[in-house]
Computed example of a mutant assay.
Amino acid sequence: MTMLKRVIFASVASLAVAGPGLAQTDMPFALDWQFEGPAAPYFMAIENGHFAAEGLDVEITAGQGSLDAIPKVATGAYPVGFADTASLVKFLDQNPDAPVTGVMMFYDKPAFSIVGRKSLGIEAPKDLEGRVLGAPPPDGAWAQFPVFAEANDIDVSQVTVEPVGFPTREPMLAEGQVAAVTGFSFTSFLNTTRLGVPEDDMTVLLMADYGLDLYGNVIIANTDFARENPEQLTGFLRAIAKGLQDTVNDPEAGVDAMVSRNPAMDKDLEVRRLELALRDNIMTDWVRENGLGGIDEARFANSLEQIAVTYDFVNEPDASRYFDGSYLPDDGSLMVQ
C-alpha cells in the first residue's frame, strides 16, 4: 500500500508554482540528525520552490542518528530519508527483503575523522602511537578505526584507547586529557575550537583522505514507493540538487532557511559547519567532475571489502542491492559547481 497522498491545490499561488491542474504529492523526508548546517540544501529546496516546482510537498523531520531513518523508510512510514551508507549496507544484510535502497549519494566522503591537537603531538596518523585516543564506543568513526589503522600502518598496540562519552569527548581533548578523538570532522573540530583551542592547533585527519573508501550519507528511498512513483522520486532528487547549488552559491542563505525552524540555532556556527561539510564531504573533486549523486563502482566494491574488516556479512555482499542510481535525473541538474 503506497504512502502517496494526492490533494488538489487550494491556492492560485500553489497552482502557479506547480502548474495548472497538477496534484501535489506529499513526500515527508526523514533526516539522520538535527537541523544543522549540512542540512541546508533540503531547506533551500523548500525555500526556493524547487520541491514545489516538481509538484512535491516536502516536510523534513529531524532524526536521532545514522540508523534512524533506515527503518522509517523500510517500513513505509517515510518514502525517503537520509542515512549512513555503511549502516544501510549492514541493515540490508540483516534484512535482505526490506524495501529500501540508496538512490543518491550525498556525502561523497564520510565525515569520519581523527581530530587531534598539534600541541599534543598529532599531525599524522602514525602520531597516534604512544598517545591516548578518546573514542565513544558507539561512534561511527571509531567503528572504522581498524580499517584506518591498517591502511596507515598504525601499531594499534601502541595506541591507548580511552572510552569516552559523546558529551565529554571534545572537553577532554580541549583539556589535554586525550591527544585525539574519533568523530565527525566538522563536529569535533568545531566543538573543540569553541572550547578555546586555537584553530591552528587542530589537526583533522579525514579518514577518506587516508585510505578509507567508504561513502558517507546517502538519500534512501522505499523501493515500493520508488517503483510506483518514479517521476516523483526523480523530481525529489532534482530539487535537492538545485537546493545544493543554491547553498553552494550562498551558504548563509542556506542556514537562514533553517533558522525559522530552529530558533535556537547559532547561525555563525552552522554556517561554518556547512562550509566544512561542503568542502570536505559533499563538493569533492569527484563530484565536481562527475556530478552529484552517483558512485564509482570500483570504489564501492572496495568499500564493501572494508566494511567486512569489522563486520561479518550474513549474506554475500551485493552492491546493486544497496544503491540504485536509475532514479537520478539526467537533465544536467546534478552538475553542481
Rank of each mutant, 00 (worst) to 15 (best):
V197Q: 14
A39I: 03
K72H: 03
A264Y: 07
L88S: 01
E54C: 02
P28I: 10
R131I: 02
A226S: 13
P263M: 00
M3E: 09
L292A: 01
P136L: 08
S188F: 11
L233G: 02
F186T: 15
R299G: 07
F112H: 12
D139W: 08
A86T: 07
A257S: 14
D201I: 15
V181F: 09
L4T: 09
T25P: 00
N315R: 12
L88W: 12
L56F: 11
L334W: 00
I70H: 05
I122E: 04
P110V: 07
T85Y: 01
D32M: 06
R279P: 04
R227A: 15
V218M: 12
L214S: 15
G37F: 01
S119L: 11
E305L: 13
T182F: 02
N302E: 13
R238S: 04
P146F: 07
S66R: 00
E47K: 13
G134I: 05
I307L: 13
R288D: 04
V17S: 13
D209F: 15
F236G: 02
L173M: 10
L233H: 00
K90C: 05
G235S: 06
V204T: 15
D312N: 11
N290E: 09
G102T: 06
S119M: 08
R288M: 11
V159P: 08
P138W: 06
D213R: 10
